[in-house]
Amino acid sequence: MLTAALRPWAVTILFVAAILVGSLTGALAPATGSVIASVVDPSIMVLVGLLVFTLRLESLAALKRAPRTVLLALTFNFALVPVIAFCLTSLLLPDQALRLGVLIYCLFPCTDWFLGFTRMAGGDTTTGASLIPIQMSLQLVLYPVWLGLFGGQQVGNSPIEIAPTLVTWFAVPAGIALAARLFLWLCLAPTARERVVQAADSLVPLVIAVVIVGLFAGNVGTILADPAAFAWVLLVVFLFFVVVFVIVEGVARLFHLGYPSKALLTMTTSARNAPLMLAVTTIALPDQPVVYAAIILGMLIEFPHLTALTHLLRRQEKKQLDGATRASVTA
């Protein structure tokens, strides 16, 4: 998980560098770009395996700790966010491929680094950890449904036809990852197990960068054909984050959430699961570079946005503490 304030900026720089390397390679040496693009499929399987391997299933025991916060997070992420994303993309993105890419980016909540940002913001990480396996399971189940509902002409197969392909692609790396976790549990002490999981977690951004390089190296021509269109992607994702933040602020006040719960709700509704969705989409929608690019561009805004939210939440917490201190002094 993200544990240092500089890590989000480092990841953003890594992804920007991956886009530049892939784009330049594909534009200047198309043959080399095609070769590099061939690493996308195996890299995706590695990425899926790492994401499953780093899941903390033992955190499910914390669900009883804050049921209201869990229910609010799930309702927001899987009921309200789809409405917000659909309205924004329908109004501002006429291109169907771009609209679908941004929708896929926005629809699914993060199952990894949001917890690191929650920790940095002083939020409820125990409840946040319990959300991870639930949200990952829900989004994998809902992905074919959302794709069939929003995909339109971009989807050549029905959700029923897509589902077995997704199961095949994810069952193999997920099974290997779960077997490896079982091996760690049987053979290593808890401290050693945690070190191995953290090491695997630190590899996730690097594998994502490899996927990005391969996608851009193989598809840069299509992506750069209309650069102005991708400026709209950045605008829509930015507006999505603003609308979500404003609504979360209102929900937190309506339900009188304490600061730790509010910080958690803010982070889990702002962070999106772009790495997993990028992996799933390259399998479900082959040869759709515009869709992939829209998902990747969302990540470039997300990390600076989450960093800004961390500082904003910390300032809010400080104001609350200062206000409580002044009230106790005057009482």
Rank of each mutant, 00 (worst) to 15 (best):
Y259V: 00
V196W: 13
L131Q: 02
I160M: 11
A217D: 01
I162Y: 07
V213K: 05
F240L: 06
W169D: 13
Q139G: 07
N219I: 02
R181P: 11
A179V: 11
D201V: 04
F216E: 04
A252Y: 01
L138D: 01
V145T: 04
A180M: 12
E194I: 00
L188H: 08
E194D: 10
W185C: 09
L131S: 02
L186S: 13
F170W: 10
T268D: 09
Q135N: 15
W232C: 12
S261V: 02
V246T: 08
L184F: 11
A199M: 11
I132F: 01
V244C: 04
L184H: 06
L147Q: 08
F240Y: 13
T168I: 15
S158W: 06
A225G: 11
P260F: 00
R195Q: 13
V211T: 10
P133M: 06
S130G: 05
V172R: 10
A192T: 12
A200I: 11
F241K: 10
N157S: 14
G175R: 08
L265S: 05
P260I: 00
F240W: 05
P159L: 03
I208R: 02
I223N: 03
I132K: 05
A174V: 04
P164C: 09
M136H: 11
E161M: 13
L186Y: 11
I162V: 15
F230L: 07
T269M: 02
N157H: 14
D201I: 05
V145S: 00
A180C: 13
V145K: 01
I176V: 14
F240E: 10
L203Q: 03
A228T: 11
T125I: 11
N219C: 02
V244R: 04
I208W: 06
W232Y: 14
V248R: 04
A252K: 08
F170V: 06
V251S: 00
C187H: 12
G148C: 02
A225Y: 01
L257V: 01
L224Q: 06
W185E: 14
I176N: 03
T222Q: 12
L234H: 08
C187T: 14
G148I: 00
V213D: 05
S261A: 14
W185T: 13
E161H: 10
F170I: 11
V197T: 12
Q198A: 13
L235A: 15
L254K: 11
T191E: 15
L178Y: 13
W169S: 13
F245A: 13
A180H: 04
V172P: 07
E161A: 15
E194C: 00
P227M: 10
Q154E: 15
L257K: 00
V246G: 05
F230I: 00
Y259A: 00
Y259L: 00
I132R: 05
V243M: 05
L149A: 15
L140G: 02
V172N: 07
L239Y: 06
K262I: 00
V207I: 15
R253Q: 13
P173M: 03
W232V: 08
W185F: 14
G128Y: 03
T125M: 02
